[in-house]
């Protein structure tokens, strides 16, 4: 898939995926070099979204493999359709003149394609999203090496299956465990961090219809401030910021105040301990003070 950097930048903006220049460049290089892209970052920063957005931009199918502990090749690559094979054997018993051969039972008719095989055999280059690869076992990670480096897989009964079209491979990781060097070596690496306030405002405006300037700014400021708190167990993600902004728009609010933040806090802070911490250390008064600083030019607010 040929893509020019400037065109990729425009297309990302058009679909509402706001990111910085280095992110666009890394994605472009992954597409151009036909190398898998490994994206790491905290939950909710837009890693999975990147895979979806690429499928949209390239107008191709998104094939998703959700990783979990215990995932193996039968769920990821292929499985034989045992039930169908058994039925065929049973049917054949009743037909005396027809002999079934072993090769007939192990043909592509009886092969259940799972995401990896589906991506390799796709008629058009697809986007293969291997989501949360850090959740799978190291053994499965090693199994992915052949797919990621040569875009081929070995099926004992059928031989080596090579990709008709090289898919765009996006792997995401929450960094819950360290991935092996073998996997990282085969990929280009991108780390997505929480955005700066200005960037987050752009994201809110792009994704939340009907949100006003002031509300977008204040929401982004409050969330940025929460992320700076060292003692929070789970920092609010971009997804939570967007949910919060949508909820505030649904409540017909065009600005924040301390009470509103305290009342809708559960949309942003998802653990009881974090909510208690907020009430104890920051509270509505703390939020009011911070919003007042914004008004007085503590942080540039471009609202009118």
């Amino acid at each position: 898939m040929t893509m020019v950097l400037s065109r990729l930048r425009k297309k990302l903006e058009k679909v509402g995926y706001i990111c910085d220049e280095s992110t666009v460049l890394t994605v472009f290089l992954a597409l151009d070099l036909q190398k898998p892209l490994l994206i790491e970052g905290a939950p909710g920063v837009g890693k999975t979204e990147m895979g979806k957005v690429l499928a949209q931009i390239l107008e191709t199918e998104l094939i998703r493999l959700q990783c979990y502990e215990g995932l193996d090749e039968t769920k990821a690559l292929y499985e034989w359709n045992y039930q169908r094979q058994l039925l065929r054997i049973q049917m054949n018993r009743n037909l005396e003149d027809e002999q079934i051969r072993e090769e007939d039972l192990f043909s592509s008719d009886y092969l259940l394609e799972r995401p990896l095989l589906k991506a390799i055999q796709a008629k058009k280059p697809a986007v293969l999203l291997i989501d949360e690869v850090d959740k799978c076992d190291p053994e499965f990670e090693a199994f992915l090496f052949e797919v990621l480096s040569d875009f081929q897989v070995s099926i004992p009964e059928l031989g080596t299956v090579t990709a008709n079209n090289i898919p765009v491979v996006v792997l995401t990781s929450n960094n819950e465990r360290e991935l092996s060097d073998g996997l990282k070596r085969r990929c280009l690496y991108l780390y997505l961090d929480f955005p700066e306030v200005e960037k987050e405002v752009e994201i809110i405006k792009a994704k939340v219809p009907g949100v006003g300037d002031r509300l977008a700014w204040e929401t982004a400021r409050v969330v940025a401030s929460l992320r700076r708190q060292q003692n929070l167990r789970k920092k609010p993600s971009i997804a939570e910021t967007l949910d919060w902004a949508r909820a505030l728009v649904a409540l017909n609010r065009n600005r924040l105040d301390g009470k509103l933040v305290a009342d809708t806090l559960n949309l942003v802070l998802k653990t009881h301990a974090d909510q208690q911490y907020f009430n104890k250390e920051i509270g509505s008064d703390g939020v009011e003070k911070m919003l007042k600083n914004t008004e007085n030019g503590g942080d540039v607010c471009r609202c009118q």
């Binding site: 950097l5 220049e21 460049l25 290089l29 790491e40 060097d181 990282k184 990929c187 280009l188």
Partner: peptide, 23 residues
């Protein structure tokens, strides 16, 4: 071949994407 090597930030980002594999 794929980037503007005279653009320092682009050059740096390209090298970072290929040489660095961990945050």
């Amino acid at each position: 071949d794929r980037i503007d090597i005279a653009n320092r930030s682009e050059f740096k980002a390209a090298l970072q994407a290929t040489l660095v594999k961990s945050y």
